[in-house]
Simulated scan of single mutants.
Amino acid sequence: MTTETYLHAENRHAEIRGRRIAYRSVGSGKPLLLCLRFRGTMDAWDPAFIDALVAQGFRVITFDYPGLGLSEGTPDYSPATLADDARDLIVALGLEQPAIGGWSLGGLAVQVFIARHASLVSHAVLLGTVPPGPNVKGAEQLFNDTARKEENGLDDQVVLFFEPASPGSRAAARASLERIAQRTEGRSPEVPVAFARAVLGETPRVPLFPADPVLQALKHTALPILHLGGDHDIAFPVENWYALNGQLPTVTLVTLPQAGHAPHHQYPRQAAAHVAAFVLADGER
């Protein structure tokens, strides 16, 4: 297995339909393609989480969406477009039955991917995202107000991705941001704030993910799906998954305590262990 860490992972490029898509690959085990959150680039991932996945036996591939970060093309945050971008990268890299994962917006893309391209992957891993259809609990206005700022410092990151009421979560936020900042060369440019604001809007959407055909796909798919969430996610409340209890036959729910929209950054090793137990120890399903 490679000893390369995510902090020092090489920026690579794949040619996809006339666009150069930037990606990084670490590890040499089961392929796991990860799709990004809103306003995220390859440098939004906590290297502790990625390295923990590698240690669990994964080859982890991250990438920048077209037109954002280090990738060429026209930016488009439509989950349907992002799902097809993920499919194109799987094909371009010659990945055979990888697992696919997505955080937040990336999780919406993965759910569309399941509806369109489920046969290409073995498992789906959703991180801090929301199911399609009506919501029993909406997003908090605080998320939109904070996510629309020009820059998000430590306090904003705590609000967006962690649990401000928990001293342990606030400490985890600081540690995670320090790890992310350690990469100093070859970083992806930030997502333009004007583009992000226009997509997000000023108030939370109702419903958060209006995609009924996708909900029907989740109700009938045979693909194993894991959702890993925090118990106080102000962007995509985890309560919406539990409201579908009994309706999604392949969905496993794991909720981590005193955590927000980035539970895998607060608990990087534990989150990686949950993912590995789900994807790599699949004989019981």
Rank of each mutant, 00 (worst) to 15 (best):
Gly73Leu: 12
Gly73Ala: 13
Asp76Gln: 06
Asp76Ala: 09
Ser78Ile: 01
Ser78Ala: 14
Pro79Gly: 00
Pro79Val: 01
Ala80Arg: 15
Ala80Val: 11
Arg87Leu: 05
Arg87Asn: 07
Asp88Ile: 02
Leu89Asp: 06
Ile90Cys: 03
Val91Gln: 15
Leu93Ser: 11
Ala99Phe: 01
Ala99Ile: 05
Gly101Phe: 11
Ser104Gly: 13
Val110Met: 14
Val112Ile: 11
Val112Gln: 13
Phe113Lys: 03
Arg116His: 12
Ser119Asp: 15
Ser119Asn: 11
Ser122Pro: 09
Leu127Arg: 02
Leu127His: 13
Leu127Cys: 03
Thr129Met: 09
Val130His: 04
Pro131Gln: 03
Pro132Glu: 08
Asn135Lys: 07
Val136Lys: 06
Ala139Lys: 01
Glu140Asn: 08
Glu140Met: 06
Asp145Gln: 08
Asp145Phe: 03
Thr146Phe: 13
Arg148Tyr: 03
Lys149Ile: 03
Asp155Ile: 03
Asp155Gln: 10
Gln157Asp: 04
Leu160Asp: 05
Leu160Met: 14
Glu163Arg: 09
Gly168Ile: 01
Gly168Asn: 06
Ser169Lys: 05
Arg170Ala: 02
Ala171Asn: 13
Ala172Val: 10
Ala172Ser: 02
Glu178Trp: 09
Arg179Ala: 01
Ala181Pro: 15
Gln182Ser: 08
Glu185Gln: 15
Glu185Arg: 12
Glu185His: 13
Glu190Asp: 14
Glu190Val: 13
Val191Gln: 00
Val191Ser: 00
Phe195Tyr: 13
Phe195Val: 07
Arg197Cys: 02
Ala198Leu: 10
Leu200Met: 09
Thr203Gly: 01
Pro204His: 01
Pro204Lys: 14
Val206Pro: 05
Val206Asp: 12
Pro207Tyr: 14
Pro210Gln: 11
Ala211Leu: 12
Pro213Ala: 08
Leu215Cys: 03
Ala217Pro: 05
Ala217Asn: 05
Leu218Val: 04
